[in-house]
Amino acid sequence: MLQAIVGFHQDEEQHWVADLACGHAQHVRHDPPWQNRPWVVTEAGRKGKLGAELNCLKCGGAVAPK
């Protein structure tokens, strides 16, 4: 289920996590070549993604909720 990004925070390992409108969170790592998200490493890049939608795996039932 697509959910809008409403903010970002870093986890205990300093990886970036997107806060979603549904209340869930999703990692948005820049870890080439597996995950190519260079926008996440700058404040301007993260601000530019506010409102963008990500597929929430928890809302979609692909991951058991905690």
Results as ranks from 00 to 15, higher is better:
W16M: 09
M1Y: 09
H27P: 12
R46K: 03
L50S: 04
K58Y: 14
E53T: 06
A64F: 09
P38M: 12
T42I: 10
D11Y: 01
T42R: 03
E12D: 10
C56W: 06
W39R: 08
V41M: 14
G48M: 08
G7W: 02
Q35T: 13
N36P: 03
Q3C: 12
A21W: 00
V63R: 08
A64W: 11
G45N: 08
A44S: 05
R46I: 02
A44R: 12
A4M: 04
R29W: 09
G48I: 11
L54V: 03
H27D: 07
L20K: 06
E53W: 02
A21S: 14
L20S: 02
Q3D: 04
Q35S: 13
H30S: 10
L2M: 13
D11V: 04
C59W: 01
Q14I: 09
K49I: 03
A18W: 01
W39E: 04
E13L: 13
R37K: 12
F8M: 02
G45A: 09
E12Y: 07
H30A: 11
N55G: 07
E13W: 08
H24T: 00
H24I: 01
V28G: 02
K47L: 15
H24M: 01
G23L: 00
V41F: 10
G61M: 05
G60Q: 05
C56H: 12
V41H: 12
L50N: 05
V17P: 10
P65E: 10
G23R: 00
G61P: 11
A25S: 09
L54F: 12
H9W: 07
W16D: 07
Q10D: 04
H24C: 01
N55I: 05
M1Q: 10
L2P: 15
R29S: 14
K58I: 10
Q26N: 04
G7A: 10
K49C: 07
R29H: 12
G23V: 00
V28L: 02
P32W: 09
A4C: 06
G45W: 08
P65Y: 09
M1D: 08
L2G: 02
A4G: 01
W34D: 15
I5C: 05
Q10S: 07
D31M: 13
K47S: 14
A64T: 14
A52N: 14
R29D: 15
Q3W: 01
A4Y: 03
V63D: 06
A44N: 00
H27A: 12
G61Y: 03
K47F: 12
M1N: 06
P65M: 07
E13A: 13
Q10I: 04
K47C: 11
Q26H: 06
D19C: 03
P33Y: 06
G23H: 00
A62M: 05
A44V: 03
A52D: 15
N55Y: 13
V41N: 14
A44L: 04
G61L: 03
Q10Y: 07
A25T: 08
R46S: 05
V17E: 10
L20Q: 09
V63W: 09
N36I: 15
V6H: 04
P38W: 07
H9E: 15
N55W: 14
V41S: 15
P32N: 12
C59D: 06
G23F: 00
R29F: 08
E43K: 15
P38R: 07
P32E: 08
E12H: 13
